[in-house]
Design a protein around this nucleic acid. Sequence first.
DNA 1: GTGTTTGCAAACAATTTGCAGAATT
DNA 2: AATTCTGCAAATTGTTTGCAAACAC
Lengths: 127, 127
Amino acid sequence: MGALKYSRQRESIKEFLAGRRDHPTADVIYMNIRRSYPNISLGTVYRNLSLLESLGEVQRISCGDGAERFDPNTERHYHFVCRQCGCVQDIPMLPLEELEAMASESFEGSIESHTAMFYGVCSRCRG
Amino acid sequence: MGALKYSRQRESIKEFLAGRRDHPTADVIYMNIRRSYPNISLGTVYRNLSLLESLGEVQRISCGDGAERFDPNTERHYHFVCRQCGCVQDIPMLPLEELEAMASESFEGSIESHTAMFYGVCSRCRG
DNA sequence: GTGTTTGCAAACAATTTGCAGAATT
DNA sequence: AATTCTGCAAATTGTTTGCAAACAC
């Protein structure tokens, strides 16, 4: 059950996201897709984003600013949030596998993965 | 302007949180405080939690499960989220300062702090 | 008495969901 | 023809806010 069918809306969302590195929110995606599909609904955007996430084609990022953000880069990587403009950027470094071993050392549960969030001021805001 | 005045509700929230290591949500706090103050409102709980956060007396944690969580431990530390029961626990290790230096290396903005979230299965769920 | 805090209810924002019709296979 | 996907609107969930009364200093 649940064979995937093509949809131009979903395709358009994928295409839009693919060209982006700014981790847009569902609403931003919606606003942009609307330029090509004026009748698309926010619900469709949310549904497709959740679907794409479960297919492993996009990553959901919550940076605590209220709205979820979506990232077409599904490889493990860290993120940065600017405390001035609120932009979210990728940190170009490989996640430290050792961190998980270190954390496991004095922790009783089993650790399978981790994420990290860096905060500061982005280059644009520093001028 | 803005001299702080005593309030038994705020005191009760601080007291409740102080004895907790499970990072309760505003709603859980509300439910519990209501046992001593049946008339307290959810709005008051939120207002006080935000106030306490700005006073640096509690820390707000967003782990992406919809609701914010509150932690009386304001020292920097990492967190763990169980993918089975959703519980949030502290990771008993010192945050790696070096991580920020590593991240800075190939990043243009200035990094001031970071957090990390570990995922896996807690000891209780593993049985 | 002045200024802060509260309870209540209404407002908000982000996300989800039910349903009939449209699109895909 | 069978099933998935969409648009719309209503429903949910988490959080904030306006206001008059209560409380603290």
